[in-house]
Amino acid sequence: MDTKSLIVDIATNLFQQKGYKGVGLNEILKECNITKGALYHHFPNGKEELLIACLQSMNESITASIEGIFRGYPTTLEASQAMLEKLVDDFDREGTITGYTFTSIVSEMASLSDSIRIACSLLYTNIQGIYSNKLEEDGFSKEKAYSTALMMTATIEGGIMLCLTQNTSDPLKMISSVLPNLLKK
């Protein structure tokens, strides 16, 4: 792994665990075992530029994961339930869900930086697009697919945050059980 990718990978994990403000540059440098000069060589505008690179990396990873799941199932309901089952299994195994959410970063930073807000918005737009496209394949009208996909995005993201704050996978299990009602045409 090259130095820039290593920095992004480690910083992403730190930002997810502690939030943007909870992670100092010195901690990133120490975890990456690099100098400040090396960090600024790859990210001349500093920590915010690094965060945007982390968000872009998460966007690619999360989008690819969701697309892979949704390609593997014939209907939105089956794909959604498989994805929720994966999230529940991840939570039950690891006690957390990393790599599928960055709501804490959004709530902490989106109002302070337009470029961060845009990077965060892009991920949610991509997720909603995956859901919407699959719903259209299932026969939903474009408008109904869009609104249902928005509801799914908000519900699943909220469910992840509830799992983390309540320290249980029950919220995602509940979402999975009521999802069939949401996906009726």
Rank of each mutant, 00 (worst) to 15 (best):
S80I: 05
D138G: 06
L51H: 03
V106K: 07
I69G: 05
D9Y: 00
L150I: 04
V106M: 14
D170Q: 14
F43M: 14
M58E: 07
T96P: 00
T153P: 00
L39A: 07
L39Q: 09
K142I: 07
M1V: 03
K36G: 07
A149E: 01
L87H: 00
S132R: 14
M174E: 09
E31S: 08
A53T: 00
H41Y: 08
T155I: 04
R117G: 15
L25C: 06
Y73E: 13
Q16S: 05
Q16V: 08
Y20E: 13
D114I: 15
A64T: 02
I105V: 12
T75S: 12
L179N: 02
N126K: 09
F43L: 13
M1K: 10
E78M: 06
P74S: 07
E108Q: 11
A145E: 09
R71Y: 04
L14D: 03
Q16P: 03
S169Y: 00
M109W: 01
K86I: 03
G46D: 11
K184G: 04
Y146F: 13
A82T: 04
S141E: 10
M161T: 01
K144Q: 13
L29V: 05
G159K: 01
S121Q: 08
A119Y: 07
S177M: 11
G22C: 09
T75C: 06
I156P: 02
E49D: 05
L25Q: 10
Y100V: 05
M174Y: 04
I116H: 00
H42A: 11
G19N: 03
R93S: 08
K134F: 13
S121T: 14
T155L: 13
E60A: 15
A154P: 01
T12W: 05
T3K: 02
T165H: 06
L122A: 13
L179D: 02
N26C: 01
N26Q: 05
A154F: 11
I10L: 11
S80W: 09
G158A: 04
D90M: 06
L150E: 07
G24Y: 04
T98D: 12
G19L: 03
S147F: 15
L50I: 01
L179F: 05
V106C: 12
G72Y: 02
N26E: 11
S147D: 07
I127K: 10
T165K: 11
N181E: 12
E60P: 12
A145I: 11
T168V: 02
K4F: 00
E48F: 03
K47M: 10
I52V: 15
S147G: 00
K86F: 14
V23Y: 00
C32L: 01
V8E: 06
H42R: 12
L25N: 10
D114K: 14
G19K: 05
S113E: 13
T12Y: 01
Y20F: 15
K36F: 14
G37L: 04
T75G: 10
V8I: 15
S141K: 13
L6R: 11
T103L: 08
I66P: 14
M1W: 08
V178C: 10
S169M: 01
Y100W: 04
T76K: 03
K185M: 10
T35R: 05
N59M: 03
M152D: 00
Q16F: 10
E85T: 14
G139E: 12
S5I: 12
I28M: 09
L25G: 08
P44D: 09
D90G: 04
S113V: 06
L182D: 02
Q128N: 14
I127T: 09
N59L: 10
